[in-house]
Structures are given as structure tokens and as C-alpha cells.
């Protein structure tokens, strides 16, 4: 009898605590539903924390392109801004987002705000402050190193903030290490040889990425690996990743001679 009462009391207390805490679960079921219904490829809803891992820092361009491409889908008229955060001391190492390049990529440079923080603490403060704003669509956090402050607790904070306020985080990380994090999705990203251009086989074309989902699931994890291409309307899925990997391997280095048309020596922008 006493044991039963104890159990009831315990259950009541648990209910009470659950009511007080009321945190969204790490994998919100709402996410799954909206992914199923979303028409275009990889257009994920807001309110998520994505970790985007690439193996090396020289893949920074590809990582930024993937994050911007994903963030572009989240821009709406009531959420017109994407905030990009970087440590000021990493600017020369990683490069700064370049307005003209954003425009060429198809991302409105006016929509991107750049924040250069001095310390990781300030960076995380600014990230939380930014995500709390109703007019921000996405926050891209670009951290080249492995600062101690960016641990599980920090990522849990960020993911809760994102879930509460409805904007997404894209956390760009570089390296082959992994650590516990509260991110709903963890991507592993690798740049792939670019698309063919119609008139010049030797010229680099539109970017391509090989994205592997290491954590989280989209479409009940039928695909865990995508070869993504870039069009004006967003990402497109290209063929089977295995074939393209073979194709890249077949590719040889530039031959010794280049067409004269490449080297006409005339200025294009005079």
C-alpha cells in the first residue's frame, strides 16, 4: 500500500517537473512531418541546428555555399536576414564572405549581415541574440578551431533557442573529429568536381557537393548521401554518387596546351 502511494507521488512529481521544464525533444516530430511534405529537395524547415562538417579548412568555400544555399530557402518577407558570425582573427585564414561573390552565387548580399566577434564567448552571445530576433531567417556560425566554449551545453542552448524562435542555425566545423552535440542534423560535406560547362570542357562550372547525413534522418533515411548540384532555384540532386566518384577519378590533369581562346589577353572589364 505504502509502495503504491510512493509511486503515485513520484509519478505526480514527474508530471509536475515535465510541466515545468517542457522542453522540446531533441528530435522534434514536427520536423519529420514537414520534410515529408516539402516539395523541393533539402528545403528543411526553420528552427533546426545543423552541424556542417568538412574535413579540412580549405573546404570553407564549399561549406559556406552549402549553408547559404540552405539558408536561402528560409528567407521570407518577414524574415529577410541571414546573420553570418566569424571570429575576427580567423578572417585571413578562412576568408570573408564577399558581396560580389554572393550576388554571383544567387544570394542577395543585402540579406547577409556579417558579425566579427573577438572571442568565442561574444560570438555565442551574438548567435543567441541573433536567433532570438523575429526577422532573422538563419544564423551561420563559422568556427575554424575547436574552442572549448562550443561544447554540448552550448549546442543544446543553441538548438533550444532555434526550436523556440523558428530560425535555423548552421554551424560550420572543420575536421574529422566529432563530439557530442545537440544538433538535429549533422552533415558531412565534401566538394566534388564541378559541373560541365556547355562550351568549354575545361572550365569549372556550377558547384557540386557530396553531402552525407551523419545524424538525423530525412525521408525515413532512404538516402544518406546526396550528390548535389546548384541551380538558380536551389539544390538539385544529381545521379548516383558512386558513378560520379568514379568519374572524378578518371579525370586527368590539364594537358600542356590550352586553347588560344582562353588566352586572348584582352581585358574583359575595361
Amino acid at each position: 500500500m505504502q509502495a503504491l502511494e510512493k509511486q503515485q507521488a513520484l509519478a505526480a512529481l514527474r508530471d509536475k517537473i515535465a510541466g515545468i521544464v517542457d522542453l522540446p525533444p531533441l528530435h522534434a516530430s514536427a520536423v519529420q512531418r514537414s520534410i515529408h511534405s516539402s516539395p523541393s529537395l533539402l528545403s528543411l524547415p526553420g528552427g533546426l541546428l545543423h552541424e556542417i562538417f568538412t574535413d579540412e579548412r580549405r573546404n570553407g568555400g564549399a561549406a559556406l555555399g552549402f549553408a547559404l544555399g540552405s539558408a536561402r530557402d528560409l528567407l521570407t518577407s518577414s524574415r529577410p536576414a541571414v546573420i553570418y558570425l566569424q571570429l575576427a582573427r580567423e578572417a585571413q585564414e578562412m576568408g570573408l564572405p564577399y558581396g560580389a561573390g554572393l550576388a554571383a552565387f544567387g544570394f542577395d548580399p543585402e540579406a547577409l549581415l556579417l558579425i566579427r566577434a573577438d572571442t568565442i564567448t561574444e560570438l555565442l552571445w551574438a548567435a543567441e541574440e541573433a536567433i532570438a530576433c523575429r526577422a532573422v531567417a538563419a544564423v551561420i556560425v563559422d568556427v575554424a578551431g575547436q574552442p572549448k566554449a562550443l561544447d554540448f551545453t552550448a549546442s543544446r542552448r543553441l538548438s533550444l533557442r532555434a526550436a523556440k524562435d523558428g530560425a535555423s542555425f548552421f554551424l560550420l566545423r572543420y575536421g574529422t573529429w566529432r563530439e557530442a552535440s545537440a544538433a538535429q542534423f549533422r552533415w558531412h560535406l565534401r566538394p566534388v568536381l564541378s559541373a560541365e560547362t556547355p562550351f568549354d570542357a575545361r572550365a569549372p562550372g556550377e558547384p557540386r557537393w557530396l553531402a552525407r547525413l551523419e545524424k538525423g534522418a530525412i525521408n525515413t533515411s532512404q538516402h544518406e548521401e546526396w550528390l548535389l548540384g546548384w541551380t538558380d532555384h536551389g539544390f538539385e540532386r544529381i545521379g548516383d554518387p558512386d558513378n560520379s566518384a568514379n568519374r572524378t577519378a578518371d579525370r586527368t590533369a590539364l594537358p600542356r596546351f590550352v586553347p588560344a581562346g582562353l588566352a586572348d589577353g584582352l581585358s574583359k572589364t575595361a
Binding site: 518577407s77 518577414s78 524574415r79 529577410p80 536576414a81 575576427a88 558581396g99 554572393l102 548580399p109 543585402e110 547577409l112 549581415l113 556579417l114 558579425i115 566579427r116 566577434a117 573577438d118 561574444e122 552571445w125 551574438a126 541574440e129 541573433a130 530576433c133 523575429r134 526577422a135 532573422v136
Partner: peptide
């Protein structure tokens, strides 16, 4: 349209990080 919210966000961030840390192109 969110511009008022954004302006306030920029104010807050500039006051903490310094005006030259919150930049537009």
C-alpha cells in the same frame, strides 16, 4: 516586415561588440 526588429538587433549587437563588428556589405 521585420526591419524594425533587425534595427534593434543591430543596435544591441553593436552596443556589446562595437559598431565595427556588426557590418553590412
Amino acid at each position: 516586415d521585420g526591419t524594425a526588429d533587425l534595427d534593434r538587433l543591430y543596435d544591441r549587437m553593436s552596443s556589446r561588440l562595437g559598431a565595427f563588428s556588426v557590418l553590412r556589405t
